[in-house]
Design a protein around this nucleic acid. Structure first.
Length: 496
RNA sequence: GCCGCAUUCGUCUAGAGGCCCAGGACACCUCCCUCUCAAGGAGGAGAUCGGGGGUUCGAAUCCCCCAUGCGGUACCA
């Protein structure tokens, strides 16, 4: 089952941004390769010139690198089986297509697109399965000469046997049998000289020595055509495993290629660069993605990359599609954030803060870490949580200063007392602050929460903030006193 | 329409004839902790294993039928 050297590939088509569903497929291939000490190859399937998107390839490679899915052969790294762009391998496909035509397994077809659409419409109207009517399968040499004389550029079609069955084994789904009459005489070489997917993939997988193919379920029904090609070439087919697709959070449809709102109106992220920008850790995304469709023991939820490599087993991949749960991703991400070392987290947060235009520095970021670490689902979430540390002015509705069961007079008195107390305090560390403010609350006849809430709003402009004493301590006496003073004046004029 | 694949708590899944009146995780609820929000701790609710037939002493696990969902049916991948 496992040959001397395992070679797997991830073969995306550069038609759009790197999608999280593709990323999972890439991940499984990568894990499989690493698990078996084999090679992970990237091949770019750019045979559809009409759907080609120039930003797709850079986005893909950046995404793979971000996720840590390094490849052994492929774009930018080269390898012995190149080129790794199908558009650079056109001669190869033509050669093999020609070989098939010569062997009678394929034939040239001169039908024009108009005739084909009309034919399909008629078939559909008649309640038949649409399919090529094999008009050109047995042309006389005179007919061919006529078409050629008219300058029609032919396509090459695979001549599917008229009867019998094609069978194959899928590592996950078992033995599958399809009747040949269900199969169409698929185009394998387009009139522009480009191959279609079916030919290119077979030729490349063979030439590149691919031993195992793991790809999305949507390809399962095209396998018989490939079996026929392998047979025609006399090549042995790699081991196939068709992976279940990833569904959107509702579990109803495929996680879309396009950005759309989920049922609850939340923005859903689907491209890898979006997860990156939103502050997900690549290691968390990898951990999460590994578990959509695969499980180790049904118990373990967190795996280091090495553990993933060690434990990954394709035979334990689920057969049924799974919904993408953003809640679970957030949970995984939050857990990874909590486990990060302080310096590491500080560095990552610093980048986010700077990107948000806040004048942060590393040492402040490091001091912030213990205050925010347990409160972040994503790195970006740090911005609204701590922005007040880096702003000169904060703004808020003075009404927020009034805490539950407090009147305006109480509030004003509390703010004034807090200002006085904190102005007079000697050391501005957490312990001292807590002691002073607790006794102040007592003196004022307030619950600790009431006083603290009041100060919180005055100093952060928010009802929710990191723990108060740590926050005040980092803010520093000068800023805290100033903000309390501002609060007193603002509140006085607002309460009028 | 035709063909193929799939179907265990809302979601991700464990489960490969008795260990399962189905286990874990997310989400949800309650309580504890508590300066807010989190995190953490302790509990709770939630699946007659899509439905119906078999096989068997015994089925979520094997077989058949049906239903539903998804995918394919392109000079797209």
């Amino acid at each position: 089952m496992i040959p001397d050297e395992v070679r797997v590939r991830f073969a995306p088509s550069p038609t759009g941004f790197f999608h999280v569903g593709s990323a999972r497929t890439a991940l499984y291939n990568w894990l499989f390769a690493r698990h078996h000490g084999g090679k992970f190859i990237i091949r770019i399937e750019d045979t559809d010139r009409t759907r080609y998107h120039p930003e797709a390839l850079p986005d893909l490679l950046a995404g793979l690198r971000w996720l840590g899915l390094c490849w052994d052969e492929g774009p930018e790294v080269g390898g012995d089986c190149g080129p790794y762009h199908q558009s650079d391998r056109l001669d190869l496909y033509r050669h093999y297509a020609e070989h098939l035509v010569a062997g009678g397994v394929a034939y040239r077809c001169y039908c024009r697109p108009g005739r084909l659409t009309a034919m399909r419409e008629k078939q559909r109207a008649a309640g038949l399965s649409p399919g090529y009517d094999r008009h050109c399968r047995h042309l006389t040499s005179k007919q061919v000469a006529d078409y050629e004389a008219q300058g029609i550029k032919p396509v090459v079609r695979l001549a599917i046997p008229m009867a019998g069955v094609t069978e194959f084994d899928d590592f996950l789904r078992g033995h599958i049998v399809v009747e040949n009459r269900q199969l169409d005489d698929q185009v394998i070489l387009k009139s522009n000289g480009f191959p279609t997917y079916h030919l290119a993939v077979v030729v490349d997988d063979h030439l590149m020595g691919i031993t195992h193919i793991m790809r999305g379920d949507e390809w399962l029904s095209s396998v018989p055509k490939r079996v026929l090609l392998y047979e025609a070439f006399g090549w042995t087919m790699p081991v196939l495993a068709h992976l279940p697709i990833i569904l959107d959070p509702s579990g109803k449809g495929k996680l879309g290629k396009r950005k759309k709102k989920s049922a609850d109106g939340q923005q859903t992220l689907i491209y890898i660069h979006e997860f990156r920008q939103a502050g997900y850790l690549p290691e968390a995304l990898v951990n999460f993605l590994a578990l959509v469709g695969w499980s180790y023991d049904g118990q373990t939820e967190f795996f280091t990359r090495d553990e993933l490599v060690r434990y990954f087993d394709v035979s334990k991949v689920s057969k049924s599609p799974g919904a993408f749960s953003y809640d679970k991703l957030d949970h995984t991400n939050a857990t990874y954030i909590r486990r990060l070392g302080a310096n590491d987290l500080a560095g990552r947060l610093l980048r986010v803060l700077l990107r948000a235009g806040l004048a942060a520095d590393f040492s402040t970021a490091l001091r912030l870490v213990p205050l925010v670490r347990e409160r972040l689902k994503t790195l970006d979430a740090v911005v609204p949580l701590v922005d007040f540390f880096f702003r000169q002015e904060i703004s808020y509705d003075p009404a927020m200063l009034v805490q539950g069961k407090m009147g305006r007079g109480d509030t004003l008195a509390a703010l004034r007392a807090a200002e006085t107390t904190l102005r007079a305090i000697g050391t501005f560390d957490e312990e001292m602050l807590e002691g002073e403010l607790r006794s102040l609350a007592e003196k004022l006849g307030l619950k600790a929460g009431q006083l603290f809430g009041c100060i919180r709003v005055a100093c952060t402009g928010k009802k929710v903030s990191p723990p108060l004493f740590g926050t005040l301590s980092i803010l520093g006496q000068e800023v805290v006193v100033r903000r309390l003073h501002d609060a007193v004046t603002r509140f006085a004029s607002w309460a009028g």
